[in-house]
Simulated scan of single mutants.
Amino acid sequence: MKNLKSIALALVVVLSTTLASAQTKKIDVKTSSIEWLGKKVTGQHNGTVNFKEGAVVFKGKKLVGGSFTVDVASLTATDLSGEYLGKLNGHLKADDFFGTDKFPTATLVIKKIGAKSANVYTATADLTIKGITQPVTFDITVNGNTATTTFNVDRTKYGIKYNSKSFFDTIGDKAIYDEFELKVALKF
């Protein structure tokens, strides 16, 4: 009986220590940023989209996870102004692209993470856009209370096929490339 109590106590101590070592840090949504870049045959557009919420998870100094919600309705171009800005923003928020009336948020949940080098990790995450979840893999660098990453997303995997040469081979110079770039800077 003493051995059973000792084993149970040791198990409680080990579990408590393991659970206590994981620390969740909320991101500062006001100072964290997401910049996007979309390219087409005849040029490109860039802009921003805001975080709604998010958190990173550490065990000691090692990044072990994270989850984020993006306010897709906040999406805006930063390379245009006036009438053209309004037209592009309206089109990007329409059903042809992100359909923000029906899908106002997107999420990213890190499922697997491994150390690549000092302060650099390779993460595999589930990215959900327009209600469709697909895996994405990217490297993320952590320095103190910041983390940065840049990765590409294939919009066609989320049902965004507007002017994609993959689906409309006669589109010519009106083609928009399937992948767009996200440059993310987290502060926590």
Score class of each variant (00 low, 15 high):
residue 62 K to Y: 11
residue 49 V to C: 06
residue 80 L to M: 15
residue 37 L to A: 11
residue 12 V to N: 04
residue 40 K to V: 00
residue 70 V to A: 02
residue 124 T to H: 03
residue 25 K to E: 01
residue 84 Y to I: 08
residue 74 S to V: 06
residue 165 K to Y: 10
residue 11 L to Y: 00
residue 140 I to F: 05
residue 92 L to Y: 01
residue 37 L to R: 06
residue 124 T to Q: 08
residue 106 A to C: 08
residue 5 K to S: 10
residue 146 T to D: 04
residue 87 K to R: 14
residue 184 V to F: 02
residue 106 A to V: 09
residue 46 N to R: 12
residue 96 D to K: 10
residue 32 S to P: 11
residue 80 L to D: 08
residue 22 A to H: 04
residue 157 K to L: 14
residue 13 V to W: 03
residue 171 I to T: 10
residue 160 I to N: 09
residue 115 A to H: 03
residue 106 A to F: 05
residue 115 A to Q: 14
residue 165 K to N: 15
residue 10 A to G: 06
residue 105 T to N: 10
residue 9 L to P: 03
residue 128 T to N: 05
residue 76 T to E: 04
residue 38 G to C: 05
residue 188 F to N: 05
residue 34 I to H: 02
residue 95 D to Q: 05
residue 141 T to E: 06
residue 43 G to R: 00
residue 170 T to W: 07
residue 119 N to A: 15
residue 55 A to Y: 01
residue 137 T to D: 05
residue 17 T to F: 11
residue 70 V to Q: 00
residue 91 H to T: 14
residue 10 A to L: 08
residue 101 D to C: 09
residue 61 K to Q: 06
residue 11 L to T: 01
residue 176 I to W: 01
residue 67 S to D: 09
residue 122 T to C: 10
residue 38 G to S: 06
residue 76 T to P: 00
residue 107 T to R: 10
residue 9 L to R: 07
residue 159 G to N: 03
residue 102 K to M: 07
residue 181 E to V: 12
residue 142 V to F: 00
residue 65 G to S: 09
residue 94 A to D: 14
residue 30 K to L: 09
residue 105 T to Q: 08
residue 126 D to P: 06
residue 109 V to R: 07
residue 166 S to K: 15
residue 79 D to S: 11
residue 35 E to F: 14
residue 126 D to I: 11
residue 59 K to W: 08
residue 11 L to M: 02
residue 146 T to W: 02
residue 10 A to S: 06
residue 141 T to I: 03
residue 97 F to L: 12
residue 21 S to I: 13
residue 115 A to S: 14
residue 167 F to W: 09
residue 108 L to K: 02
residue 27 I to H: 10
residue 30 K to Y: 02
residue 41 V to I: 13
residue 104 P to H: 08
residue 120 V to T: 07
residue 160 I to Y: 07
residue 75 L to M: 11
residue 185 A to L: 13
residue 96 D to Y: 10
residue 149 T to Q: 01
residue 141 T to L: 05
residue 141 T to M: 03
residue 134 Q to S: 09
residue 61 K to H: 03
residue 89 N to G: 12
residue 70 V to C: 02
residue 119 N to V: 05
residue 179 E to N: 05
residue 16 S to K: 02
residue 112 K to Q: 13
residue 1 M to V: 13
residue 155 R to W: 08
residue 188 F to P: 02
residue 65 G to A: 13
